[in-house]
């Protein structure tokens, strides 16, 4: 029964009002504060934001892998192919993880077990989810390695014998070994050289098309989003501040924070132009303000922004922005510098 997705609709992932806190001894880190989004079969969404915006916590919550303690999922529902991830027993979770949904982690240097051969690490997941013998699972592992561009005969080697880019490919092979419906890629290229980055991204793209996998791409790199994603959700201090299709967010930017992100990108065609970083630091998740968390850094902020939580505005059927400034129908951001 678990082999088949229980839902017939195209929505493979539905996250509603997710709130995740880390309750430490003397403070509470409010990492994720009410996030909702859905993902359709074969589509891809980019979660964009600075370090500490709650992207990885969101991903871990979707897998129900938030480290507890100190992590606590305060509220919300997560629906993966019809399974309520937050309500399942460990045994059921183990059947879904790696099979319906899997994840590529940020740091390839530490995410592979150093004392187990890479082939065995890929085969482990196949053995767990499919009714195959150990040798069949290993054969599949070799196939997967070749699929990600590593010669199959290296399956018996250990992680320390591979370079960073190759280890990331091994992690991708592990994640895709059972052909999951959803793949979460948590900054899969951050730890890699630029040249390797492009290779790895292309590979994820190809495999995604080949298997029809839905993708959640977590990144702080807008270039990666442009290359990989159909939809974009911009996160700030544990909330999605702007959400829409790639065109919505890139060509019709609404949120001042999104604007700030684009302004912080260097433009190689205009070398003399100065970077315009967002002033200030990302909001301290242990002391979030009453009003909009971005207000202290926002050039458009008014008293209304600082006093009450931001209001949500539907710009178009696909485009959503969470910003009090749009209460004023005439409000417009300056538009980002490198626009057009």
């Amino acid at each position: 029964m678990l082999d088949e997705c229980m839902t017939n609709s195209d929505v493979v992932l539905d996250v509603q009002d997710l709130v995740v806190h880390y309750e430490l001894k003397n403070e509470v880190v409010k990492a994720v504060n009410g996030i909702s989004f859905t993902l359709q079969k074969g589509r891809s969404i980019g979660l964009v934001g600075e370090t500490g915006a709650g992207k990885t916590t969101t991903a871990l919550a979707i897998m129900n892998l938030v480290p507890k303690p100190p992590g606590v999922v305060k509220s919300g529902t997560i629906d993966v192919c019809g399974y309520k991830m937050l309500e399942l027993k460990p045994k059921q979770l183990e059947k879904i993880r790696g099979k319906e949904i899997s994840m590529i982690f940020q740091d390839p240097m530490t995410s592979l077990n150093p004392v187990i051969s890479v082939g065995e690490q890929i085969a482990e997941s196949v053995k767990l989810h499919e009714n195959v013998s150990a040798s069949e699972a290993y054969d599949r592992a070799i196939e997967m390695l070749e699929l990600v561009g590593i010669p199959g005969e290296r399956a018996g080697e250990y992680p320390h014998q591979f370079s960073g880019g190759m280890r990331q490919r091994v992690l991708i092979a592990i994640a895709l070994a059972c052909n999951p419906r959803i793949l979460i890629a948590d900054e899969p290229t951050t730890a890699l050289d630029v040249t390797i980055q492009a290779q790895v991204l292309n590979m994820i793209n190809d495999l995604k098309k080949q298997f029809g996998t839905a993708l959640i791409m977590i990144t702080h790199d807008l270039g990666v989003v442009a290359k990989m994603c159909d939809d974009v959700a911009v996160m700030y201090a544990g909330r999605i501040v702007e959400k829409g299709t790639l065109e919505d967010v890139f060509n019709d930017t609404k949120h001042p924070y999104t604007e700030g992100l684009f302004n912080s990108l260097p433009d190689i065609t205009k070398r003399e132009s100065e970077l315009k970083p967002i002033p200030g630091l990302i909001a301290d998740p242990t002391k979030l303000p009453e009003g909009c968390a971005f207000a202290p850094r926002c050039q458009y902020a008014t008293d209304a922004c600082r006093e009450r939580p931001p209001t949500i505005h539907q710009i178009s059927p696909t485009h959503l922005v969470e910003c009090t400034a749009y209460d004023n129908p005439g409000f417009q951001i300056e538009g980002w510098q490198n626009h057009g």
């Binding site: 460990p90 790696g98 994840m103 982690f105 482990e124 767990l128 989810h129 992690l171 592990i174």
Partner: peptide
């Protein structure tokens, strides 16, 4: 607290 344990759990390896 090693990352590779998270990788293992994400694969669905029982605790």
């Amino acid at each position: 607290r090693q990352d590779y344990l998270r990788t293992a759990r994400a694969k669905g390896v029982p605790e």
